[in-house]
Simulated scan of single mutants.
Amino acid sequence: MNKRLIGFIAASLVSSATFASEVPASFDAKKCKAEYPKASLLNEEQGAVTMSFLVSPSGDVMDSKIEKSSGFKNLDKAAVKAISACKFKPGTKDGVVAQTWTKVDYVWSL
């Protein structure tokens, strides 16, 4: 297998609402992928990063933070940058569109 080829990269939404009446924001993981950093490809770096995003009622990312690192700075930065640029479906609180935090796992695999 050619290690330069990007293997399976998956982003999955981890839905864990803070309150029963809160639905976190979501996005289409198939349309929103990060480009594997060249240095990470060369070094055969792999891992999963868990991030949290604050999503506005309009579906834009307002803030982000890394909850659990992949172990590689380049992979973490690339995942945050790519997912932050995605358009989210806004979350709701008590049935009303609202600003919400949502967790996302992004897996880097060769």
Rank of each mutant, 00 (worst) to 15 (best):
S58G: 06
Q46P: 01
N43M: 12
C86H: 01
I9A: 11
A39Y: 10
D63F: 15
A85F: 10
L13N: 07
N43A: 14
C86Y: 10
F88R: 03
K31Q: 14
K31N: 12
D63M: 15
D76E: 02
G59D: 00
A85G: 03
L42C: 08
M51V: 12
A20W: 13
S52G: 12
A78G: 07
S16H: 06
F53N: 01
K77C: 01
Q46R: 09
G47T: 00
L54E: 04
K38C: 04
F27V: 07
K81E: 11
Q46V: 13
S56A: 09
F8E: 12
K33V: 11
D60S: 08
S70A: 05
V61E: 07
K68I: 10
A17C: 06
C32W: 03
A17V: 05
T18G: 07
G7L: 02
K81G: 01
S56N: 02
S70W: 00
C32A: 09
S16V: 11
E44K: 10
A82N: 00
K87L: 04
N74H: 11
P57V: 05
A29M: 04
V49F: 05
Y36Q: 06
E44I: 04
T18I: 14
I9R: 15
D28M: 03
A25Y: 09
I83A: 03
A25E: 05
L13C: 12
A17T: 10
A82E: 00
C86V: 08
D63G: 08
K73F: 09
E45G: 01
L75N: 09
E44Y: 01
K33C: 09
S56T: 13
A85M: 07
A25S: 13
V55S: 09
A39T: 13
N43P: 02
G47F: 07
I83W: 01
P24L: 05
F53S: 02
S84T: 03
K77D: 14
S58D: 08
F72K: 09
K68V: 05
T18M: 05
N74K: 13
